[in-house]
Nucleic acid binder design. Structure first.
Length: 312
DNA sequence: AATTGTTTCAACCGCCCCGGG
DNA sequence: ACCCGGGGCGGTTGAAACAAT
């Protein structure tokens, strides 16, 4: 490749270590800006956009690369997503070391996982709908419920039910006060987690404290997190999740482990503007059963099947 | 061990906004 | 007022890694 063609050539795909080095040198000299000059100077055959993306997502210091989202990070994402939608860059500002891409990827993989499990469970419940009362996507009489996988699926499905509602029926959800989903008698192991410090754009705080984010003009609301509670959806991912919330767990009302994850957002219709929070600040909560009783069971039939990748 | 299915995540694409000319 | 390029952002893709059979 020579002359003009060489100038026009734009390299794509994975970055090589040498390219990273060039990019880092540029940032050292000029700071994280003037991305397009990297190409115009002939330093790299990458677009300015590509250079910026590489820096932001992989090369800038203090990134938590290759590190799974902590429970608290997951909670922040879930609650903020419910509040402000898919504003990944905005949400990422609340998560030190995470980029918008990280948040986006976390969310989409979580959505896919939940959708898949929901579909599986919903299919099962549909076939048995007439046999027994459908509760939370499965039949109470279903002998399979005692199996770990069914218990897991059921728990996750509950989370998905709410997520889907937010995504697909956001207008409806805003009008309907959601029940508080938090079981008051969670096993201590689910509550006492490793204390982790976060640095928000505004302040640092301890995860076990009640966090009051300052008024955000864009959100037009106080964003309050109760970090003392736990987002159990993340527990589901843990190998010992079923052990923690086993069918024999006395705290389990239906013998399937925890019915619903906690930390899901709720909206108080009379609070003057939306506000997210947890059981800590809510009275008169409904349990998950009454919530699902409020909706036709067919609601899950409308769920889109999970995006399956067919690549062969 | 081989195959198939699933998940993760880096990177691209297109759209939009903004500022300079 | 308009155009253009740079940069920011959300959505999407697809290769690689991982898990299940």
């Amino acid at each position: 490749m020579h002359g003009k063609k060489e100038q026009e050539y734009i390299k794509k795909g994975p970055w090589k270590a040498e390219e990273d080095e060039v990019l880092l040198n540029h940032v050292k000299k000029y700071g994280p800006r003037d991305w397009s000059s990297i190409r115009s100077k002939g330093l790299l055959q990458r677009t300015g956009k590509s250079c910026r993306l590489r820096w932001v997502n992989k090369l800038q210091p203090n990134l938590k690369n290759g590190c799974k989202f902590s429970l608290e990070e997951e909670r922040v994402v879930i609650e903020l997503q419910a509040e402000i939608g898919n504003k990944w860059a905005k949400i990422a500002t609340y998560l030190p070391g995470r980029t918008d891409n990280d948040v986006k990827n976390f969310w989409s993989s979580r959505q896919k996982r939940l959708a898949r499990i929901l579909q599986t469970t919903a299919t099962t419940s549909k076939s048995q709908r007439n046999k027994a009362k459908v509760r939370d996507g499965f039949t109470l009489e279903d002998p399979n419920l005692s199996s770990p996988m069914e218990g897991e699926a059921s728990s996750i499905m509950s989370q998905q039910s709410y997520s889907s509602f937010f995504n697909q029926n956001s207008d409806l959800v805003k009008m309907v006060p959601l029940p508080d989903l938090i079981k008051p008698n969670l096993p201590s192991c689910a509550i006492n987690h490793v204390e982790q410090e976060f640095i928000t754009p505004f302040e640092s705080y301890k995860s076990t404290e009640q966090i009051a984010f300052p008024q955000d003009p864009e959100l037009n609301t106080d964003v309050t997190f109760s970090m003392g509670s736990q987002d159990l959806i993340t527990k589901i991912d843990e190998p010992n999740f079923i052990d923690v919330f086993s069918p024999m767990d006395a705290s389990s009302e239906y013998g399937i482990g925890l019915e619903l994850p906690i930390g899901l957002p709720f909206f108080e219709p009379s609070s003057g503007g939306s506000r997210i929070g947890t059981r800590d600040t809510v009275e008169n909560s409904k349990n998950c059963d009454s919530f699902f009783d409020d909706f036709p069971v067919d609601i899950f039939d409308e769920m889109e099947p999970p995006a399956t990748q067919s690549k062969l």
